[in-house]
């Protein structure tokens, strides 16, 4: 595999890594809490891109499987018949190109999609709780900058000691 081919096959990963790091940079460099959460969002979305990128199959379709054409139902290598769920459970580990098409069509990998659906939902859940905390912090300190909050606490402590 020469350099150009390598770059074509791995360019996506490199860009996604830069995007992830952009998000992480936003989170840790800013003291503004809303911007911090925005950065967290960018960071997480870029991780989702890493997952989805790895599940893409060239020439593939979205993983919504069409019913097999008439008579071809048994052609699938190890599709199994009804009731296959418990008895025929051996998952084949080694595949070759002939195994890839399902009912004659190539599909992209569904697993990263499933995981990332979960990831998106967890992300928005965290965001909601984080924003709720920000609203409360603003009510308490009248600012959403870390610096201001620290200063307010420092003053409060000095006043308490005096």
């Amino acid at each position: 595999m020469n350099g150009m081919q390598f770059l074509a096959g791995h360019f996506n990963y490199i860009v996604v890594i830069i995007l992830m790091m952009t998000g992480l940079y936003i989170v840790i460099s800013t003291g503004n809490m809303v911007k911090k959460l925005t950065g967290l969002g960018v960071f997480q979305t870029s991780v989702f891109q890493l997952y989805i990128t790895m599940g893409k199959v060239t020439g593939g379709r979205p993983p919504i499987v069409a019913h097999a054409p008439e008579g071809a139902e048994h052609a699938a290598a190890n599709g199994g018949e009804h009731g296959a769920s418990t008895a025929d459970t051996a998952v084949r580990m080694v595949h070759d190109m002939a195994d890839v098409p399902v009912n004659g069509v190539i599909y992209s990998n569904p697993i990263p999609h499933v995981l990332i659906l979960t990831g998106i939902v967890v992300g928005v859940a965290t965001l909601a709780v984080g924003l709720a905390l920000i609203v409360r912090i603003r009510e308490t300190y009248d600012s959403i900058e870390e610096e201001d909050v620290e200063e307010a606490e420092y003053k409060a402590r000095k006043a308490a000691n005096a």
Binding site: F11, A84, R92, D99, V100
Partner: peptide, 28 residues
């Protein structure tokens, strides 16, 4: 990155194993 599978490879580790199995068994 150097040890990552090529983009779009149908037989890469993530694509050829359990993912492919799901595609084959979901309908039955």
């Amino acid at each position: 990155v150097t040890d990552m599978p090529s983009f779009g490879d149908p037989l890469s580790a993530p694509n050829a194993y359990v993912g492919l199995e799901y595609l084959k068994r979901s309908l039955p």
